[in-house]
Design a binder for these strands. Structure first.
Lengths: 234, 234
DNA sequence: GTATTAAATTAGGGTAGGCTAAATTATGAC
DNA sequence: GTCATAATTTAGCCTACCCTAATTTAATAC
């Protein structure tokens, strides 16, 4: 039986949390991300454990098995291929692709996945700058990237990815011209306030909460493995 | 709350059965089509009635309300837009589009539906020759069409639609060159056996079970309302 | 009208996925 | 070490869907 949307969403969330803070991943962290009650997640984790998709230490947290990680990565591949396709072929605005992909990722066939990848010519990055896992379903290595709010003033940097979490923030960033591939100059970083950027000659002030969802790379570090400029649509 | 896939599939099935034989639609006819137990369908119909999507006479059958028919037609629009898109833009073979569309039809947003229709330039027929309902969700008028097995020998006819029910039959028909828009000559109709057609100069024998899924229109009757030749890919 | 039969419903039971409230366990303060 | 708190699990309940088996109703034959 192929995994249900709930199972896939839970595995995907554990995968992301593992990337961010490493295992073990706690129940309430998952519940927060999925907007479910803790008890609901506990019973879902029971099922994941039965299916050998995670290992678990009572009261301590869980960790993906190889099997679980492969499922998570496949869902991630679906998600990012869909985002890319929606933006490139159906003219979706950059900030709207996430929501649609989040539903469809659970319902496309292997055939559909293949044809998407083929039509897009096996893209390596999605519209947010995130790496798209390959057909082998190896976890993509997350490039070590610095959040914008932690950058030094005076850096000349290039945006490599923008989190796809919040649609309003995304729309705002797209509006001021900040997309993966944009080169910017950091004019000022205030400890508790706005971060000022020079974007294409215009100064833009970004609230810090929003800025932390932007990851940047120093211009010197731009190389093939990061490959940010294949998708500079703004 | 938007209707679940089970609710949508049941409404779609009732819609089709109403088109074929008119209301009331019996429980076991629905159960057969959906490959579910009768008792399962009975309890689904209870829910449909609660939601005012159907009316029901105990032991007699059910009928769609306006509300229920609108939901069914929207699902039908999704299905046929998806089939058309898969065939035209993702290079799906004609006989494979049905299965993929049957899952995805329940999971696309109104936005996705709009962008599909726009990209396809508001198509009127899907790859099987079936009419695609418009944005207004008015039920498309099913053109009165004759099943092939009921045609007179000697007719010069044009294929207007081919049922999308059975993938194997579809592949076979596509293989011998029978798709919506093909003009054929009926050479022979045996009472219990094969039907012989002249397709593009070659004689093709079709088993009667398969032939009944092909609907035809006399060449004289071909007009704008039927518009079969905008999609003659074979 | 009665008997047969087919169709439909009811009865009873199962799993997945959702919740709140109560109990339990781990953790950090002191 | 004890205590307060936070995280986690358990207990108990709900709905949607799914099933089989038993019952009821409708339709048909005679």
């Amino acid at each position: 039986m192929s995994p249900s949307p709930v199972i896939e969403d839970t595995l995907k969330t554990i995968y992301h949390l593992q990337q961010e803070a490493g295992p073990p991943v706690g129940t309430s962290a998952i519940a927060d991300r999925l907007d479910k009650a803790q008890a609901t997640v506990t019973s879902t984790l029971d099922r994941l454990e039965d299916q050998e998709l995670i290992t678990r230490e009572p009261y301590q947290g869980c960790e993906l098995t190889d099997k679980g990680r492969t499922v998570a990565v496949e869902v991630l591949r679906h998600h990012r291929l869909l985002e890319t396709y929606l933006a490139d072929h159906l003219d979706y605005p950059w900030e709207q692709v996430h929501e649609e992909a989040d539903r469809l990722e659970h319902h496309i066939s292997e055939e559909f996945e293949r044809r998407l990848a083929e039509t897009l010519e096996n893209p390596r990055r999605d519209p947010h700058g995130d790496p798209i896992p390959g057909e082998d379903l190896e976890p993509p290595n997350q490039d070590p990237m610095t959040p914008l709010s932690a950058c030094e003033v005076g850096d000349r940097v290039v945006i490599t990815r923008v989190s796809d979490r919040n649609e309003d923030d995304l729309a705002y960033l797209a509006d001021v011209g900040i997309t993966p591939g944009t080169a910017v100059h950091i004019v000022d970083v205030a400890p508790f306030g706005m971060i000022t950027l020079d974007v294409d000659g215009t100064e833009q002030a970004i609230p810090e909460e929003v800025a932390t969802s932007i990851r940047v790379t120093s211009l010197n570090d731009v190389d093939d493995s990061v490959s940010v400029d294949h998708r500079g649509d703004a």
